[in-house]
């Protein structure tokens, strides 16, 4: 059986030349936001931006550079890091392009412990919602403008942020009861057009209990 050669596409490979060209283009495009290349990453492109320029930088990367996939948001705690001078915390965003493998880069924001706030990018990338919740849960970084910033991995009665270097790794915290999910479930059902006709007697939603451990007020 003959196959038509028109439908077979050449596999797109990330060549070193394409990667280098992308890096130059990205640095040129992000220059106006004060993005500086970090010399600590010899294997790829990491730029450090100020947190007030973060939202504009990410928007430019998504729309102009074509980085349409946010792979991860990582929190970093530099407490006790060897030969390090600078703010204690950092949040790093890992981006790549789905169709062009040469396009991949990272953005880093340095934040002081006293003012641990970073603007959210969950309005640009949907996945950033849960990833920012994870960074908040594990490091205590507050993402300003996040629609629902509460713990995602640890339970609601957890005190502290376990991936900080000053959290004792073996300090265990018991949970007294399982998570109370009825208010969230009812809210979700109501948003989809359902109506709560009756609920069992033992269910008495209390917003305060449910939001314990959350900063949402």
């Amino acid at each position: 059986m003959a196959t038509s050669g028109d439908n077979v596409k050449e596999p797109i490979v990330a060549t070193p030349e394409a990667a280098k060209a992308f890096e130059e283009a990205a640095l040129k495009a992000l220059e106006k936001f004060g993005a500086v290349r970090s010399e600590k990453n010899p294997w790829g492109l990491t730029v450090v931006v100020d947190r007030c320029n973060l939202h504009a930088t990410v928007l430019a990367m998504r729309d102009e550079l074509g980085l349409d996939m946010l792979m991860d948001i990582v929190g970093i705690d530099y407490l006790g890091f060897k030969d390090y001078v600078g703010p204690r915390f950092a949040v790093e965003y890992v981006f790549k392009s789905v169709y062009e493998p040469a396009k991949r880069m990272m953005v880093k924001v340095l934040v002081e412990e006293a003012d641990l706030k970073v603007p959210t990018i969950s309005d640009l990338y949907g996945i950033a919602n849960w990833q920012e919740r994870e960074v908040y849960d594990q490091y205590g970084v507050i993402f300003e403008g996040h629609p629902d910033l509460r713990r995602i991995l640890n339970h609601v009665e957890f005190v502290g942020h376990p991936l900080r270097k000053d959290y004792p790794a073996h300090r265990r915290q018991w949970l007294s009861t399982n998570d109370y999910l009825y208010p969230a479930l009812e809210k979700r059902l109501e948003s989809k057009g359902y109506r709560i006709l009756e609920r069992p007697e033992e269910i008495n939603p209390s917003e305060e209990e449910y939001l314990q451990g959350s900063i949402k007020k």
Binding site: L153, N154, R172, L175, S176, T177, N178
Partner: peptide, 10 residues
């Protein structure tokens, strides 16, 4: 995990 402990007990 500690998040799951109350469920197992129940």
């Amino acid at each position: 995990t500690y998040k799951q402990a109350p469920i197992l007990k129940r």
